[in-house]
Design a protein around this nucleic acid. Sequence first.
DNA 1: GCGAGTGTGGCAACCGGTTGACAATAGTTC
DNA 2: GAACTATTGTCAACCGGTTGCCACACTCGC
Lengths: 356, 356
Amino acid sequence: MSAEDSPDAPTPPVTGVRANRRAKSAPTIYDIARLAEVNPSTVSRALSQPGRINIKTEQRIRSAAKQLNYRLNPMARALPTGRTSTIGLLVADITNPMFFTAVRGAERAAAERGYTLVLAESQESGAREAEAAHRVLPSVDALILVVTRLSDEAILELADRKPLVVINRMIDGVSSLVPDVDRGIAQALNHLAELRHTAVAFVAGPETSWMSGARARSLRAQAPGRGMTIVEIGPGAPTLDGGRDALDRVLAADVTAVVAYNDLMAIGLMRAATAQGIAVPGQLSILGFDDIFGSDFTSPPLTTIRIPLGLAGDLAVRRALDMIDADAADTEYSTPDEPPILTELVIRGSVGPAPR
Amino acid sequence: MSAEDSPDAPTPPVTGVRANRRAKSAPTIYDIARLAEVNPSTVSRALSQPGRINIKTEQRIRSAAKQLNYRLNPMARALPTGRTSTIGLLVADITNPMFFTAVRGAERAAAERGYTLVLAESQESGAREAEAAHRVLPSVDALILVVTRLSDEAILELADRKPLVVINRMIDGVSSLVPDVDRGIAQALNHLAELRHTAVAFVAGPETSWMSGARARSLRAQAPGRGMTIVEIGPGAPTLDGGRDALDRVLAADVTAVVAYNDLMAIGLMRAATAQGIAVPGQLSILGFDDIFGSDFTSPPLTTIRIPLGLAGDLAVRRALDMIDADAADTEYSTPDEPPILTELVIRGSVGPAPR
DNA sequence: GCGAGTGTGGCAACCGGTTGACAATAGTTC
DNA sequence: GAACTATTGTCAACCGGTTGCCACACTCGC
């Protein structure tokens, strides 16, 4: 307490920022208890189990809490209960705009239920991602992998420890949130087919990207039925540069249209092509995935398959919270009926009729 | 539940996700202590104060820890020490690309020192921001306000409780990280002056944006000396829509050039102008601030004043960590010598000669 | 008037670390 | 060999909540 004096060091009036901050001792339930003249445990009950306590006592406690401007200490609660009211979010690359759409959805859903997001980036490295995952794991109630470069085994191991939801990757035994790949690819191919493209290249993303592989598989499966051939180019970095670097191989492949792994690559490719005097879509049609921020700024504006990642982020948090609840109630969690995550063809200007 | 649950059975293979997770009891220092045959407090010292313990004992403890795959429980440490190894990041709008540049810089600097970022969005609302700030405050070591809509008083109050760094706003008595406003405005005006613009509009951001006000003031101060007039339009939302909505008033103001509060507004305005058949930069020149992702995708590509926000995020974290250290050592924190955050004129295509 | 049932609130242990105080042991000096 | 210091490890209290268990007071039914 402050009333008691320091025996010999009279703590002189210190200037600067630090001094004020010393007044940081936040009020605790013990302070409330003293003020409301009850036992601390009663305060705890009044605040966290409404109804357990006599309504009059509860109100007395609540007003004391308000008077002291009491804030519960999350860490103190977390220690005995394990509940941290926190969800960890792991992303491979913060600067990919597709990611923040997901984060926004997740943030909203989390804040709505009083949860806070803990963020970690792995910079496209599996090792750093594993490290980050283990760093945040003890202090979160659940983990969401937005774009992961981890191996299936590593993910399963994490899922053993905490509720875990994966976006954009399908793993057996793990709650996965994946847009309908085949439908998206079908939308892409149908659009290209209508415009009479038959020779199509797929510019792949990183090898460790499950989604890139899934799209490649779906393309190979669906192209023949439409009389189309698929040339796979890659793997490459899922960035503007990665797209740009693929141009030579695209040109060498003698195709009239390109499906890029994501919008970033599509835009990189498109800009490289334009810079070389190749007309888009006159000589080369380009189609992306995601519909990221800025994809309608390009010229021509990018035709793309929109992935509703905000929805995915939102759903991921809801699932995570449900899993947390199921854990707490010691009941089985089962994936709820949810609307599927449906892709949508956004026709803009980067895909045109095949040159003849 | 299908599993037989005889108490001594060697945990039969139970189906379902929950069952596995029950094995979540993480090893503690008590487990290590038992294995290494020392007292738990010795384990604590060995792990967190290398050298305090006999080197042989320490190594025995470390290998026991490794063997058990021990992870320190951050909450348990945080409770007595107050150190959470966590920095809170508050942003007004996650979907503004300028923000994630800053986050990336912050994330890197934080991860480097073993710190984790806690993220909260306030959706451009001061009230929600205050709420979010108080929610995360107890569980972070420091707070960084990337783009804040809080009042000065609210910020000062937060700064009293925890180390706090503000980006893009100058507040007396608070560690502020602000790019050189006057220099940026000078760069903008010089560029416009060279192209013989004399009537310029400033499309302002939100009223609560300190930076918008600062730019407006600097414009008013610097324009006359260059023989220019400034019309201020706004305030408006710092978004694509906000920029679009300003078009009518820009046209009514009879100017040849526009300086927008940020790139988002600049792009929104430019697209609205183009849609109305107004040539950019033929009839109207547009200049933005930030150099966000995508600002070079537009047609014409956006001329803008680049703010190195990645650097700002990085510096903010470093400062925050230094303040935390200073607090721990009970020493005075003083702002270090840092390179100033210098803006840079990025000339692209949205500013041209004034029509005559 | 008595026992059972219910509502209320206190006691104390616990979560997993940290740390000041101190005891035990080892090492040094005279 | 005694006195003294340095090193090493132990004990126990503490951080701020949560919760099982229990005591007490009161109501109700018979």
